[in-house]
């Protein structure tokens, strides 16, 4: 099975802060892997190194044992990358862009044109095939770029924040497409939309300040937190003593308790007996993200360290 491996992979841009800090990674290249993290976490840096467009400062990264720096030419035959903030060339049409990209990959003109039509069809944007990009919406432009890399037929596709800036409907359409496209290829996706990772990814990595904090399937990450359940108290209940897990105050000012199944059952009984409204669920990826990053972003954007707040 194909694997992506990184050993002590680090990157520092000039004399600036470290962007990637001794990342160790071992990943099967099947399905969708989503790398989540805040802005500046190092997601793009990792994608750019793995997709051979950026040199690391130290450490090594390999795809199937092939070094991404020393044997980049071999890697490039098997990958396709859609960079963050990429835009289709305004004076060209999708058909022209996809054809040209495939020709850059060495495909003949006629065959490239045929594959371009297939990709447009696959992405459901055939009707825009001969429309200039400058006349398209942002969502359609992103679909064109995804069609471009998918048309390559590469085994491994790197998509760096492909849905950033899209409205919720366009984002949902893109999710549907990616869910369809993941069959038969590996998609390495970065995003800061946690619901996107939750909806699409088979495995998820949490990156913060250049460090890979956790990696695994959603259920594995839940287990790693030690608190697989969340009890969200839906009204003011500061008088309730909670010693059954980890407690944080949510954005609405109410308490949220991360706890075990046993703890969730016991807390639920107490809340019912006190007539307090609550909701019990498996922890979401957002909960997991905060757990690992250990920082809580207040609604106003202010960051507070720690994240663990013991209720009264």
């Amino acid at each position: 099975m194909t694997r992506i491996t990184c050993k002590k992979l680090s990157k520092r841009y000039g004399k600036g802060p470290i962007a990637l800090d001794n990342v160790d990674l071992s990943l099967d290249t099947t399905g969708v892997f989503a790398l989540i993290g805040r802005n500046g976490a190092g997601k793009t840096t990792l994608v750019r190194i793995l997709s051979t467009t950026l040199f690391p400062t130290s450490g090594d990264a390999k795809i199937d044992g092939v070094d991404v720096v020393g044997e980049a030419d071999e890697i490039r035959k098997r990958i396709a990358v859609l960079p963050q903030e990429a835009r289709p060339i305004p004076w060209m049409t999708p058909r022209e862009l996809i054809t040209s990209y495939l020709m850059w990959r060495g495909v003949g003109y006629k065959n490239a044109g045929k594959k371009a039509s297939e990709a447009l069809d696959l992405l459901g944007i055939t009707k825009f095939g001969d429309t200039m990009h400058s006349h398209m919406s942002g969502g359609t432009k992103r679909k064109v770029l995804v069609a471009t890399v998918i048309a390559s037929g590469a085994d491994i596709i790197f998509l760096d924040e492909p849905t950033t800036g899209l409205d919720p409907i366009s984002r949902g359409e893109m999710w549907d497409l990616l869910a369809k496209l993941k069959k038969g290829r590996f998609i390495f996706l970065t995003t800061h939309y946690l619901e996107e990772a939750e909806a699409l990814a088979d495995r998820i990595g949490v990156l913060d300040e250049g460090k890979l904090l956790a990696i695994g399937s959603l259920s594995e990450l839940r287990r790693k937190t030690g608190y697989p359940y969340s009890v969200k108290i839906l009204q003011k209940a500061d008088h309730i003593k909670i010693k059954l897990g980890r407690v944080i105050r949510g954005r609405d000012g109410n308490l949220q308790v991360f706890t075990t199944k046993k703890g969730a059952d016991e807390l639920s009984r107490r809340l019912i007996s006190n007539g307090i409204k609550f909701a019990t669920n498996p922890v979401s990826l957002e909960d997991i993200f905060y757990f690992f990053v250990k920082k809580k972003v207040d609604e106003g954007g202010e960051e507070t360290g720690g994240g663990e707040w013991q209720g009264a």
Binding site: R48, S51, T52, T53, D73, R76, K77, I79, A80, V81, L82, P83, Q84, E85, A86, R87, P88, I89, Y101, W104, R105, G106, T148, V149, S152, F158
Partner: peptide, 22 residues
């Protein structure tokens, strides 16, 4: 323009095209 504004060159770098051919 292709490199900095559109990021298309990065797509080409991560493809089998070499700098010389490009």
């Amino acid at each position: 323009h292709l490199k900095n504004d559109l990021k298309v060159q990065e797509m080409v770098v991560g493809s089998p095209t070499s700098a010389t051919i490009y």
